[in-house]
Amino acid sequence: MRHTIAALVENKPGVLARVAGLFRRRGFNIESLAVGITEKETISRMTIVVAGDDRTIEQVTKQLNKLIDVIKVSDISSNAVERELALIKVSTTMQNRGEIIEIANIFRARIVDVARDSFIIEITGDEEKVNAFINLMRQYGIKEVARTGKIAMQRGNKALE
């Protein structure tokens, strides 16, 4: 099972190394990790997607909690808004440009750069949507993909703090 874990951490040098080191040492598998600062500039938020059974996930959250620089850890796998952003550079020809633009529109993706033989397309959405879009683009020839990894937030009034 894949779980999405959100962690509030001190915005200090070395925190990412501590978290990454912990995952490596305990044999936990990070599928994606996204970090950015929060509304308080001294605090960062990490969104970590990790695979494992319940026991593993329990250990992940407990071990993360033990790190002094980690302030709060929460498993937000259920009932959360999840988003990812990807930039995709696709090859284009005069003939298929229209078709690509149309697909992009259906996905509410945006073309953010146009060159002679390629587009950069920006797409946001949950992972499945991004995957589906990337798969559709394969037929045209993908030159480059950059993905942010997932960020997530639990629905409702409650906040992680």
Binding site: G14, A17, G21, R25, I68, D69
Partner: peptide, 14 residues
């Protein structure tokens, strides 16, 4: 040394 001892300290500082 702070990198080296990260997994064997409760916490460390540079």
């Amino acid at each position: 040394i702070s990198g080296i001892t990260m997994p064997i300290t409760k916490h460390n500082y540079l």
